[in-house]
Nucleic acid binder design. Sequence first.
DNA 1: GCTTGACCTTGACGCAACGTCAAGTTCTAC
DNA 2: GTAGAACTTGACGTTGCGTCAAGGTCAAGC
Lengths: 256, 256
Amino acid sequence: MDWSIQEIAKLAGTTSRTLRHYDAVGLLPVTRVGVNGYRYYDEHALVRLQRILLLRELGLSLPAVGEVLAAQEAAGHGATDALREHLVWLRAEQYRLEAQIASVEDTITNMEGGGPLMAEHMFDGFDHTQHQAEVEERWGEHAFASGDRWWRGKTPAERADWQARAAALAADWADAASRGVDASGEEAQVLARRQYDWLSGIPGTPQTADGHPTREYFTGLGEMYVGDRRFSANYGGETGARFVSDAMALFAEREL
Amino acid sequence: MDWSIQEIAKLAGTTSRTLRHYDAVGLLPVTRVGVNGYRYYDEHALVRLQRILLLRELGLSLPAVGEVLAAQEAAGHGATDALREHLVWLRAEQYRLEAQIASVEDTITNMEGGGPLMAEHMFDGFDHTQHQAEVEERWGEHAFASGDRWWRGKTPAERADWQARAAALAADWADAASRGVDASGEEAQVLARRQYDWLSGIPGTPQTADGHPTREYFTGLGEMYVGDRRFSANYGGETGARFVSDAMALFAEREL
DNA sequence: GCTTGACCTTGACGCAACGTCAAGTTCTAC
DNA sequence: GTAGAACTTGACGTTGCGTCAAGGTCAAGC
């Protein structure tokens, strides 16, 4: 049972170029090469490939991936040293990022001359509720001031966390859109759910009794995204916004 | 008043190669080129260079740095849009890292078959208090068990933060050592102070009444680092450990 | 038997921001 | 005059593939 390079690539969710690369660096040698020069992979290769991709998602470099796999093969199972080392790495990076964020915030406030970052930048990078006026028009008056108070009532750490969550969501949407992901597929729907859950945290949005956005609000918001520069700018233009909108509409249809 | 490429590089704390690169990409054009082909920079270039380096430390890409500077020049001062965009970026990265760290931790616990990460890995990446036995021998019995209880009493978030701090410190030591930094210089001494402050957070270490490590403990610890593989492995070998030790000794001499 | 189109190959450039030789020229000091 | 330091341009290396480019292979249809 063996597969061509494209077949195994699709099975594992990667590309043929990546497979050739892994072969070139010796991380995943090709199982068999036909007389025509074609590469073929068997099920052992598939398992190894899946492990490689998993470790890569954890942020390990290719040499590090190789170490982990070699250790596992040598010690039957276990040998987490390389992973633990990587964990230390990740934590150091996180700490560095934290410091950088603080520095950038300081720089911004210095350049703007005083005052900490307030509500006007609450939705930086994910400014969909800038549509506040339109939203209010369609779903009735909701005091944005209450949202503002909610924001100011948060601690700096909470604000940062909230913004980080929003930024990550925005980045993931943009990434998925650029990769041409299917709006009805699992990945996009997971994103739509994240968007939905995230919205639940914002007061001043139309919500059901259990604190979640209403179906109408959710789909309506999605529709408004399309064609609105303030939103689409962060999501790969109108194409990206349309993708987001589609995914949200499908989610609402199925789940709400 | 103009300087040669090496002179201005030293003034700003960078390298001549970097200056040539900035010239090549148009970020910092050279002020004047002599008939011999030599590059010369004036004070305006120095100011701009310093701004560039500052923004680079905040993590901006060269094009982003160019945008910020252009906006500042156009608008007199201000124009923080690019920086704010960068901030969103940083937060998204941080969030991504957080998720990765959680995944790696899960993977490790899965591979080791159960149980969350406990005290045995408390000092991962910065395991100087593994010298516990020797330390106790020299500074009297201090129950390591109390340190263990302290660790287990922390919340996961606190543990992660503490480990991140330790990992960052370790990484910075290793980096400074690899760059051949002077142990008596400001950079190394700042690191030594961080190390000192960090130690203050660990119960079970000899401390003065105000909760700080004693001078003897601090210098003694530094001495033990040299030649101990468990420590030096993380710091660029014995050379790195010696550098750390020297910096710590000088710090203790001057400040404690 | 031929064309078409999908799939495959190797080879090579591109990216980010410089570090690091290499080979040759110029300056400075003795 | 000459050693040695400083300078120049040019080019490769780094990481993990993406992305052409140019061409060979295969299955299907006419």
